[in-house]
Simulated assay, not measured.
Amino acid sequence: MQNFVKKMKWPDYLILALLVGFFGYIWYSIEGTLNYKWRWELIPGYIVGWHSGREEWFANLLLQGLAATVRISIYASILALILGTILGVARCSANLTVRMLARTYLECLRNIPPVVVVFIFFFFLSQQLIDALDLERWARGIARQEDIGVWEFFFGEMRRFPSLVSGVIVLALFESAFVGEIVRAGIQSIPRGQREAARSIGMSRVQELRYIVLPQAMKRVVPPLANQFITLIKDSSIISLISVQELTYKTVELVASSRMIFEAWITTAAFYFLVCFTLSRVFARLEKRGKAGER
């Protein structure tokens, strides 16, 4: 902290003063002009609550939403990485039809508003898949069991499992378009000479991708993929529109029931900031260690 203060120059102090003044003015406008009564003392109770009957603490609305956001982001990122890698490889395929199909998918998703994409995927794909697999009946059966602690840890409340699956599928399909372009750029960054050398020793194209191109490409695209994962966490708020009960959806519920508009949304913004900022610092440190190891 002391090193950070020493590095600051007078323009940094000026910007900091302007920011403090700006937020102070907003605070004064809300409290004075709008005659808004702040109720920050109630917010902790909506994060962690006390159950008087069972005499134990429990995760309340905001913490439930945060946990759901983390789960959805992790599962969607894994699925998006798998789909994106397939799309990235397809974009570099020697077959023109495969290349054009992959490019059409990527260009459509990257140039259509996310809200539109979410509704299209939800109504025409994820909901149809859930109905076809009868996931609602299966989830209700799990929810009736007594010992479901492991299920709830990984998937939350099992009665809402179909909703979680919908959110993961929709978010993964949308984000896979961006992951696909990142992987495609990584594959094309590998020198052509390495590919020619692989073919000269009798490797097939699949072996060339598996043993030569993809290992190097994936190592190069780790930083942009890490940034995309952080973006995915922020984009997860979009799926609240299809009633997936993540952090943004729970915040809307809290605002509707308590009328604590500013407290609820500021707390939610703080949650998103803490998660994304922490991950960005972790990824930055891992990237530095990777570069140091290469030296």
Rank of each mutant, 00 (worst) to 15 (best):
Val170Asn: 14
Val165Phe: 14
Pro162Lys: 05
Arg137Asn: 13
Ser166Val: 11
Asp134Val: 09
Leu171Gly: 00
Glu136Asp: 11
Asp147Gly: 00
Ile142Lys: 09
Arg140Pro: 07
Gly149Met: 02
Glu157Phe: 05
Arg159Leu: 14
Gly156Met: 06
Glu157Leu: 06
Ala132Ser: 08
Leu164His: 05
Gln127Tyr: 08
Ser176Lys: 07
Val165Asp: 12
Ser163Val: 04
Gln128Tyr: 02
Leu173Trp: 01
Arg160Glu: 05
Arg140Cys: 01
Ala143Gly: 05
Gly141Thr: 07
Phe155Ala: 04
Arg160Tyr: 08
Ser176Asn: 09
Leu129Arg: 00
Arg159Met: 10
Gly167Lys: 05
Val165Tyr: 15
Trp151Gln: 10
Phe122Pro: 08
Leu173Cys: 15
Val117Pro: 06
Pro162Glu: 02
Ile142Gln: 09
Ser163Glu: 10
Phe122Trp: 09
Ala172His: 03
Ala172Met: 08
Ala172Tyr: 08
Asp134Arg: 11
Glu152Gln: 13
Phe161Ile: 07
Val168Thr: 11
Ser166Glu: 15
Ile148Cys: 02
Phe161Gly: 04
Leu135Tyr: 05
Ala139Cys: 11
Phe122Thr: 14
Pro162Leu: 03
Ile148Gly: 05
Ala139Glu: 11
Leu173Pro: 04
Ser163Asn: 12
Phe174Arg: 11
Leu173Glu: 01
Glu146His: 02
Ala172Pro: 03
Trp138Pro: 09
Arg159Ile: 14
Ala143Leu: 01
Leu133Gly: 03
Val179Thr: 09
Phe161Leu: 10
Glu152Asn: 13
Gly141Cys: 08
Phe124Gln: 12
Val118Glu: 04
Arg159Ala: 04
Phe155Ile: 00
Gln145Ala: 01
Val170Met: 08
Ile130Asp: 10
Arg140Lys: 10
Ala177His: 14
